[in-house]
Design a protein around this nucleic acid. Structure first.
Lengths: 172, 172
DNA sequence: CGGCTCGGTTCGTTCAATGAACTAAGATGG
DNA sequence: CCATCTTAGTTCATTGAACGAACCGAGCCG
């Protein structure tokens, strides 16, 4: 977002959420983190985002408690960005915005399909399981490639997501 | 958003939705339209948004089918922006992002409370009624001022929203 | 006729996004 | 032991969207 990321004086919880999440790229970083992307280079290649912007977004999300930075190896020291409980709570709105986009902004077949793992049943548009009716947590959801998914990219995350994958489990 | 509003090559329904809804101010315009705001001047005063940006956002939302432009008087000719069925489908994600912001970005008491009108019961964080369990449509929801709502603004929309108000009914 | 309201458009300024180049620090290999 | 590779960034000049103040035009109102 340009020139003022804030919505001062709105006295609105949505506006507050958007001051954090409404900046360009931020919600796509959260989506990738929910999918299981954890490393700087993987976000970079999968999102095709300027490096400086990615650094800034990751720092902001860590500061806001949506991601945490965790050491995953010493020598050389390397950190990964793992989604927190607060970040996992973004799963329902993120899913629902995607479903809305699928119905109103995407013309072809779905790109991805989501299934409640215990039931092996698809999710409805409220992120609830069509079989058991429960609202899903992301760790119970499997992402599968949809019929409309093209084969036009070869970065590690895109390749890994061509096979069904449980959300939150590290990718690639 | 600056310098490219698109997320080309993402093959992702969320990215497509955000190409429309992810620009600065857009989701707040949708929120106001769900509340019942319809007129250019009311959006302008309530959002405190640059006039040129508001014009551009309203046009984009009309083009995308989220709002429609309707003549509400002749001589002088005046149009209002009314939310469509596609726009009303944004109620659940908009509500849920607000609830997330309330839990994680707002420190004080809630600014607004939402009740399922037939049951007079509050909504849970999935926009379902805590009494009957149904997923709510915006026209069944009443917005009421919350305990944390300040009295620091006097534009017509803010004033009108200080009393309970059924969503979608024209405001002010 | 002058001023007011409503719904915009125009335009110069400011600042975030972009992308290419550069940096750092340890691993790897000949 | 020097060169190259990998990973995770930072720096910087350029570009274009957001900002906000001024302006515009059509019709009403006194």
């Amino acid at each position: 977002m340009a020139l003022g990321k804030n919505y001062d004086g709105q006295n609105c919880a949505l506006a507050k959420a958007l001051e954090l999440l409404g900046e360009r790229w931020t919600l796509l970083v959260v989506r990738d983190a929910l999918y299981g992307v954890r490393r700087y280079g993987d976000f970079l290649a999968h999102l095709d985002i300027p490096r400086a912007v990615l650094s800034q977004r990751l720092h902001t999300l860590v500061e806001a408690g949506v991601l945490t930075k965790q050491r995953y190896q010493d020598s050389p020291a390397r950190e990964e960005y793992v989604i927190t409980a607060a970040g996992r709570e973004l799963w329902p709105p993120v899913y629902m915005l995607g479903r809305w986009g699928e119905r109103h902004a995407v013309t072809n077949e779905p790109w991805r399909l989501f299934f409640h793992q215990p039931c092996d049943a698809p999710l409805d548009r409220y992120a609830a399981c069509t079989a058991c009716g429960a609202h899903t947590e992301p760790d119970q959801v499997e992402v599968r490639p949809g019929p409309g998914l093209p084969n036009d990219r070869e970065d590690p995350v895109t390749v890994a997501m061509r096979i069904p994958h449980r959300m939150l489990t590290p990718l690639p």
